[in-house]
Design a protein around this nucleic acid. Structure first.
Lengths: 201, 201, 201, 201
DNA sequence: GATGAATGAGGTTTCATTCAT
DNA sequence: CATGAATGAAACCTCATTCAT
């Protein structure tokens, strides 16, 4: 997609076909499947066909890989969200666009870093956490604007900040029960969440 | 409390003052703070004032401690929930009682095992997962009954099973942002979640 | 010897027959023979008949072993020096006693830590260096007192502080050429150094 | 200087402005500061602005760099010493000239290889040691001649061979305490050493 | 000559677990 | 029951060296 290409150009995301890029992708999958602590650097290296020592040409240490996985994921979701938000006007539709982005990020294997951020946050040292928090603040700012509007218009029952926490929890948790191959489509799941929280006017 | 005493008597929960009981309590705190993988058996032993070797007189291995922490937590919450549900009739109040139980279990340090179940599920091997799932099914059954009723009565917008997933996610996530010492009480937070999902009739 | 026994009792030196004591002794030999960087913890462990992992029951890391080797060596030399100094009155004889102590410490395999301190000083991080410096200052204080007296009495040509540096260098370097099994005894070598620096009155 | 230029011409010393020459100079500094084992080829390469792989166009392996650093240093000191010795006649002045050469080599950063030889001797394999020993023997021969004369004339108290060892030790050790920026000049230090060992007639 | 990704052996350290005392 | 030294596998990481480009 042209979206990714632009992120690569800006240096925010690693070229997916490069060794480093393939490493980040493999790390995303493994961290999601097995967890960060139970994924060894040998696992990672084997997944991209190099030896474990070679890993440290691309990253100074294992935690830097975790950080890269998460940061690139946020950059990707952010870019998608800006795109999607620009296409609709209605606040409910803006919310739907955002839920779609986050829901897909969490439940699709294309961008597992987002889910990993939720489950492995404590595996990051304070410095890396802070670095990621900068991105998260930008990201959460988008949600706040839309949800505050909805609350002012009386379309949701509780303040935007709380509603955002509820939505985040619900979407993260969906990863633990939603079956991508089941009958329910991801879009239907996302719509149900919106329906649960937003009044039909 | 007589509640705990009875659970002890039934063999579902370890006597809290025994060495084993103190071990489980300490494990709950440490697993919550640092995560299961990053908590060493030495940490655990030191916390209760024994040496790491002695730990294995009480548990066959480290994972058995994790399992005990989780199972005892569910037993506790289940007992509290049965108690609380028996005291009210109105479905919304039943829901409130359940949200109170789970919300407190997650955000109080008294019973951290519930939160740990959510974050460390993948650290358990299939056998232990299955053993815990037996309890979880009983626990989720309670939720299903109440939420199905609410949906039939038109008080919530989406089916009970989905609403339950949303509530679970929202409550688990609350652990990541709710500040016990802040202005918002836990009860207020729980009420906001109910308000977000349930129609005022 | 009763001297060592007392140091053990005071906690300044590790019981030589304990695992830790044998480790320190083996480390002294290996660090002297191969150098600190080229001695692996596996080498060390093999030398005392344990596995490398077991090493870390006794020491938090490799550098702590180096530090222990050096500190215990200084404690030993210090104790010997106090003993020897107490037995003579004449300043030249006091100097001879000190040169004997240091010369033997450097050229005997009984106490290689002293030599190691000279050659591996840069392998220690600043904290460990400072800890050892506390001992060194006490040790150098003994030399200063005796050499200052000799200078005031006109028995040596240059100030005590410089003479001390020259003696230290000469004795450390002796390790690189003196042959314990050769014709020259260690005592003869030490006397030659004194003779080179001190006037026959 | 013409001295160095001639050494370059004879092939004994590498042209200082060439890549190889700059490499040897950088290696000298780093080996002196951090020690041979703790200096990586990456450090070396970075210091001269190339990548580590390129290093091996100039040297077959890391140890060859150490050897070159030492051998070139000895060639330099030897040349300086021949020059200086040719300018004076008096044995004491010859000794002073030699002490000046060696003292400066050790305490000046211009030619750190001499000091490195002392501290990193064990890092060399036997072949490289032997190769260097050929040079050292020539070098030590110069000292022997002068010191033997002084002993025969009764100007020093102990045989030349021992006195040489003492001087070498004292000068090498001076590197550990002499402060180039302090009040004492290097010449004063060197004179003190001579004064300590040589009788004023 | 230079690059830089990759190698692969080997380094230190961690840690759950065992077991003689 | 507790101890604590020892185990041994496995972890992360380092680094001299190679080699296709």
């Amino acid at each position: 997609m042209t979206g990714i290409a632009q992120l690569v150009e800006e240096g925010l995301v690693t070229e997916p076909d490069s060794a480093k890029g393939r490493l980040i992708k493999a790390a995303g999958q493994l961290f999601k499947e097995k967890g960060y602590a139970r994924t060894t650097v040998r696992d990672l290296a084997a997944e991209v066909g190099i030896l474990s020592g070679s890993l440290f040409h691309h990253f100074p240490n294992k935690e830097a890989i975790l950080r890269a996985v998460i940061e690139e994921a946020i950059h990707r979701v952010l870019a998608q969200m800006y795109d999607a938000l620009a296409k609709v006007e209605d606040p409910v539709e803006k919310l739907r666009a955002m839920v779609r982005c986050e829901g897909h990020a969490i439940n699709n294997d294309l961008n597992p870093g987002f889910q990993i951020m939720a489950s492995e946050w404590r595996s990051l040292n304070p410095e890396n956490q802070e670095s990621i928090l900068v991105l998260r603040r930008e990201y959460e700012g988008l949600w706040k604007k839309v949800l505050d509007t909805l609350f002012q218009q009386g379309l949701i029952n509780v303040e935007g900040s709380f509603t955002r926490h509820f939505i985040r929890g619900a979407l993260i948790e969906s990863h633990n029960w939603y079956d991508v191959d089941g009958k329910l489509t991801l879009e239907q799941l996302e719509d149900k969440l919106i329906q649960a929280l937003v009044h039909s006017p």
